[in-house]
Amino acid sequence: MTPRPAPRHHPDAALLMAHAAGTLPEAFSLVVATHVSLCDTCRVELAAHEETGGALLEMMAEGGSGRHEAAMDQDGVLEKVLERAQALPEAAPPAPPAPGTDLPEPLAAYVGGGMDAIPWRRVGGGIRQAVLETGPDASARLLYIPGGRAVPDHGHRGLELTLVLSGAFSDSEDRFGPGDLELATPELEHTPVAEPGAPCICLAATDAPLRFTGLLPRLAQRLMGI
């Protein structure tokens, strides 16, 4: 990827840790993995959290029932594992990133290509979205907000992660540019407004439907399915 300014807004430690632990819903993990692809600081942090996982694995007691049997049978299991490894497909060396993709790899895998491949659907007010297929505990979508346009006022029942891919938006909290991740909790009510000029394209994930404050936006909610 082309060099770009380092992101200023990052996932917090709890979120990175949960991503390392593998306990986040898939949609949130997708947002975190996409941010990490764009952020060297978080890449290092994430590796440290994975080391914590390794240290905990080391500390894991070998206990449990049938410890004796298990020990006696271990060589048999080892043989089975070696046999099983034969049946695994040849471990290919990590593939070089597909050239010419303008989306970070983890996201490109969900879109099935780059920006051009995003199956946008109009949802009113010039805003477009594309819902990505993830596990059921949270949902992920790409949002296209024309320059200068606002996403209606809304609060959150759960956690909302918004990662800017291109363009920028601002809300009462701050300005968010490419690579920046905004973490919105139920306490935050905000009106993200795309900066004038180029459209703002974001990846957003939430584990609860958004709660819009006005009457008209509720209609938008129905239309947008968020």
Partner: peptide, 24 residues
């Protein structure tokens, strides 16, 4: 840590039946 990440991904795959998005 390396073995932990392999076990973690396998767990997500088998127990939760979800994909594991991994950073580039």
């Amino acid at each position: 840590a390396w073995i932990f990440t392999i076990a973690r991904n396998r767990r997500i795959d088998l127990l939760r039946r979800e994909r594991r998005p991994e950073a580039e």
